[in-house]
Design a protein around this nucleic acid. Structure first.
Length: 354
DNA sequence: TCTGGGGTCCTAGGACCC
DNA sequence: TCTGGGGTCCTAGGACCC
């Protein structure tokens, strides 16, 4: 029987590290750490991806490069090369789309695959083999009744395997795990759940939404127990996502002080961002500036361009600079970010007026 | 081990208008 | 005169994900 009620999640194994090893075969089997500019002595840079060999030393993404170097001094440290990962991602997605299925790319190294498929297991094996044969990269595939189940199932399949979760097997796999194992529950939500005495997925699944109201908004209070029972969205969106915003941010190796320095950086970020966005044929509706102090306090101010969406670099840059007036700027600055919220892509609406 | 960069979605409160 | 309710836009911030 054709069974379109199954969803697959394709999750590339150590994607960024794998792309690097693919073009440097001599690194195969060695601990590889990718992140920042590849200099493990530099402060304020973190690991983007560690190869499985490096993970055995306790190196993981998000860890400062210097900490990674301490744990694994023999690792090969490489700078991040986003263009290469983007190109490799396109290769993988093209392989998936060559099958008669629905493909929803989910970030660079993941995709949901739907479609009316008679034998989900056989399809998963075929997808995995084709990705490997045509890109040299390996992946795990999770099969489930919705995106949440499929996504978690893929984790069980890593590396390189196929794993299935269903409504019937969900709780046996997940019940004893901490709530953090759920897709969408992060550290903040975990802490609040723990404060309410809820620690495991099974406990959360058995919790009434009312019991969560002291710490959560009603919508979240309803959503969390359902999530713990293995519920989730099952729609596969094949249309490419149109970016809604685009940003550039920089953490400085040493804190900035003084308005001149700050203005200089805001200008540079705004121009780089503007060139990128306008080069992609988009227009900018709102401009935001974010400043993180040395004490790790974030402040953001945003401005809606009064004259409507703009295609002019100077308008973007001036808007970002003007936003600086809303910051006190009386503390050392660790990070500056500039973000553009984009006007809806109106290319095919054909408005000929200039 | 002092904590990146690129995004998305959600909520809440105030302004403003009818 | 103590005073409504809806709708929309704008801004700020929280949380999460890869």
């Amino acid at each position: 029987m054709a069974d379109s009620a199954w969803l697959r999640h394709v999750d590339m194994d150590q994607f960024i590290a794998a792309v690097e090893v693919r073009r440097r075969p001599e690194l195969r089997g060695r601990p590889v750490v990718v992140g920042g500019n590849g200099d493990p002595t530099r402060a304020r840079m973190v690991v983007a991806t560690a190869s499985y060999e490096a993970r055995e030393f306790g190196v993981h993404s998000g860890m400062p490069l210097r900490a990674a170097a301490r744990r694994c001094p023999d690792a090969v440290f490489l700078p991040s090369d986003p263009d290469a990962y983007l190109a490799a991602s396109a290769e993988v997605m093209a392989v998936l789309r060559s099958f008669p299925v629905l493909v929803e790319a989910w970030g660079l190294d993941e995709a949901f695959v739907g479609g009316d498929i008679a034998d989900p297991q056989a399809l998963a094996a075929d997808l995995k083999a084709a990705v490997h044969a045509r890109t040299g990269l390996s992946c795990a595939i999770g099969i489930g009744r919705n995106k949440h189940q499929a996504k978690i199932a893929a984790k069980f399949g890593k590396p390189g395997g196929v794993y299935t979760l269903t409504d019937e097997t969900w709780m046996a796999h997940m019940g004893d795990r901490p709530v953090e194992a759920l897709w969408g529950v992060g550290t903040k939500t975990t802490r609040k759940l723990n404060e309410l005495g809820v620690h495991t997925v099974a406990a959360l699944a058995a919790t009434e939404p009312e019991a969560l109201l002291p710490r959560f908004h009603i919508n979240v209070a309803r959503w969390l127990p359902a999530l713990a029972r293995g519920a989730g969205d099952a729609t596969v969106v094949t249309e490419p996502r149109v970016a809604k915003s685009r940003g550039r941010e920089t953490t400085f190796a040493r804190d900035l002080t003084g308005r001149d320095q700050i203005e200089e950086q805001v200008s540079a970020l705004a121009r780089a961002l503007g060139e990128e966005v306008l080069g992609a044929g988009r227009r900018v509706a709102r401009v935001a500036v974010k400043i993180r102090s040395a004490s790790f306090f974030d402040e953001t101010h945003i401005h809606t361009l009064r004259g409507g969406p703009t295609g002019e670099l100077s308008v973007i840059e001036n808007a970002a600079l003007a936003l600086l007036d809303q910051f006190a700027l009386d503390r050392p600055v660790r990070l500056i970010g500039v973000r553009a919220e984009l006007a809806p892509d109106d290319q095919d609406r054909g408005t000929p007026n200039a």
